[in-house]
């Protein structure tokens, strides 16, 4: 009786639902967009700056919305500060071994950097008349330091959620060590796609958009490898995906979100003008469906 593939089958669901899925999506976009924008600032050319600015705007906006969603996912939202401050002793609340604890601090720190860069780009675009804010944009040592630290924090915010899901005892999530890597890689592909879409819309097309497109192709190939490795690492647990969620993962993520955009990249003239935007939209949708499947497919599993 009850031959189960893993001891994780006996745990209960935390009921992390739509708010968390949306946060995973927005948090990944925030971290990824900041990272790409910082890369443009650090190693890109001056004519790509408008693209970087777009990235910083996107990062800050996504982070604010995502953070609010996360707060309201708590069943006691008014106690969100308990994550940062011990409510009885008022000492800092920090457990370096708990991803949710480090993640809370990372979100706050990354939020500060995203806000600084947001002010910087506002000033650069002439929307904010504050001289000091201009120093937060390159060239300049301060700007470079901000870009390096903020970019790394961005990647952290994009990836820690995967490790957080793994540091549980839930089926699928904790049966593989690769979720964090998958989320980092997928965040990069989604963010590149998001920035392509934004740049196309805002008519501030910079040459860097082609670099983004190329990055997307490379990262998507990497994402495919990670996804395959993840399914293999699940071993017998992978049978939990022999249902509608598995179908959604295969067709929604692998076929529509990875293989189709890759095909569009190699066959550049298939859809003509719309080739790049179609690919980007598919990548973005694929990233969302990926997070949806990961979060919800663990729900129904168990004894």
């Amino acid at each position: 009786m009850n031959a189960v593939p893993s001891s994780t089958w006996f745990s209960a669901s935390p009921e992390w639902g739509w708010l968390v899925v949306l946060y995973l999506f927005l948090g990944s976009l925030a971290g990824g967009c900041y990272f790409l924008a910082a890369l443009i600032d650090l190693v890109g050319r001056a004519e790509d700056r408008p693209l970087a600015r777009l990235g910083y705007y996107a990062a800050f906006t996504c982070l604010v919305i995502g953070g609010i969603l996360l707060m309201f996912d708590l069943t006691r939202p008014e106690r969100f500060w308990h994550l940062l401050l011990q409510s009885h002793t008022f000492r800092p609340m920090f457990k370096y071994w708990s991803p949710m604890s480090i993640g809370s601090w990372a979100l706050v720190t990354f939020g500060a950097f995203a806000f600084i860069s947001f002010l910087g780009v506002l000033a650069e675009d002439g929307l904010l008349s504050w001289r000091a804010a201009r120093h937060m944009r390159p060239p300049g040592l301060l700007a470079r330091v901000i870009a390096v630290i903020g970019g790394l924090l961005g990647l952290y915010v994009a990836g820690y959620t995967g490790v957080l899901l793994a540091v549980t005892n839930r089926p699928i999530w904790s049966d593989t060590p690769l979720l964090g890597m998958l989320f980092v890689v997928s965040a990069a592909s989604m963010s590149a796609a998001f920035m392509i879409l934004l740049a196309r819309r805002s008519a501030r097309t910079a040459p860097g958009i082609f670099a983004l497109h190329r990055i997307d192709a490379w990262v998507l190939a990497l994402e495919l490898l990670v996804l395959i490795a993840l399914v293999i690492s699940l071993g017998p647990v992978a049978r939990a995906w022999l249902n509608a969620w598995g179908l959604l993962l295969f067709f929604g993520v692998i076929v529509a979100g990875v293989l189709a955009p890759l095909a569009l990249y190699w066959r550049r003239d298939w859809l003509g003008e719309r080739n790049m935007t179609t690919a980007a939209a598919l990548v973005l949708a694929g990233g969302f469906i990926l997070r949806l499947v990961i979060v919800f497919s663990a729900e129904g599993v168990g004894v």
């Binding site: 409510s87 000492r91 457990k95 071994w97 708990s98």
Partner: peptide
Amino acid sequence: SSPETARTRGDGPGADLGN
């Protein structure tokens, strides 16, 4: 690794920070 993983019965507070 957390202080909880090496804890034994009747040992200290483990991963409890004392809040």
